[in-house]
Simulated scan of single mutants.
Amino acid sequence: MAVDVIEEDARWTEAGLEALSDRAIAAVEAHMGLDGEVFETVVMGCDDARIAELNGEFRAKGQATNVLSWPGEERAAESPGASPALPDPDGADIELGDIAIAYETCVREAAEQGKDFQAHVTHLLVHGMLHLLGYDHIHDKDAALMERLEVEILGKLGLSDPYG
């Protein structure tokens, strides 16, 4: 997959956001059987102020959050707990969408939860990528499906269950 990483906050450069993004997104592609040469996404590493601005603009929630996703098109499943249709590599949905991730929130959450920072960021990027593919966690059945996929994908990367 073509991953365009934009580091609005220079701390993401030192944190290795580009490598983390490539690894997380490639793992999602492999797990979902997607051809990584076909699809594109953007990952923006920003700070809490910027993500709070985006959260306010797009979700009417004016506070910082860890990760936001903007799918290129709606891919949600028709019923709770069902898997969304995967994007068609021959269709017009080549651009899967955008992910924004906030540095301070990620640092704080990793410390509060006793998690390795890079493992936490990897989890959030996998989570964001699944949102781009139409997965969600609004309904319990959808959340269970999405969390199971996250755990499976992270396990293949040698990372522990973030929910355990």
Rank of each mutant, 00 (worst) to 15 (best):
P84C: 03
G164V: 05
S21N: 10
M129R: 13
L54R: 00
R148K: 11
G81F: 07
R59Y: 14
A27H: 11
G114A: 06
C46L: 10
L133S: 13
E57D: 09
I94Y: 03
E112L: 12
I94E: 10
E78N: 07
E74N: 12
A77D: 06
E74F: 04
H31E: 15
G33D: 11
R23Q: 15
E29K: 05
D88F: 05
T122W: 00
E95I: 06
T122H: 00
I138R: 04
A15L: 12
G81E: 07
W70H: 01
D136P: 01
V107G: 05
T65M: 08
T13N: 09
A52T: 12
R108Y: 11
V121P: 00
P84Y: 07
R23S: 14
D48E: 13
D136R: 14
H127Q: 10
L149W: 13
D9K: 07
H123D: 05
E14A: 15
N55K: 05
G62C: 06
L125F: 04
E73V: 07
T13S: 14
D140S: 11
H120W: 14
G164T: 03
G155C: 05
A100Q: 10
C106V: 06
G155D: 02
E147Y: 08
V3P: 10
E95N: 12
L34A: 10
V151H: 01
L157V: 12
A102P: 09
R50M: 11
R59W: 13
V28P: 00
P84D: 04
T105P: 01
E7N: 07
P71M: 05
A26Q: 13
E74K: 07
K115S: 11
V107I: 14
K61F: 11
S69C: 09
T105D: 02
A30R: 15
I25A: 08
F39N: 00
I6N: 01
D35P: 00
L54K: 02
E7D: 10
I94W: 06
L132P: 00
Q113E: 12
Y135L: 08
V151L: 04
I99V: 13
L157R: 02
W70A: 06
G45H: 08
D161L: 06
A92I: 05
D136M: 07
D48H: 01
E7I: 08
I25Y: 11
G72R: 01
G128A: 12
L157P: 09
G36Q: 12
L132A: 06
E95Q: 10
R11S: 15
V107S: 02
E40C: 04
D140W: 05
R75C: 01
T13Q: 14
A82Q: 14
R148E: 12
A111R: 12
L20C: 09
V151D: 03
H123K: 14
E73R: 10
A144N: 06
D136C: 05
A100G: 04
E95C: 06
G45D: 03
G128T: 04
A82E: 14
A2V: 12
I94R: 13
D98S: 10
E18G: 08
G128D: 13
A52L: 04
A49G: 02
G62N: 12
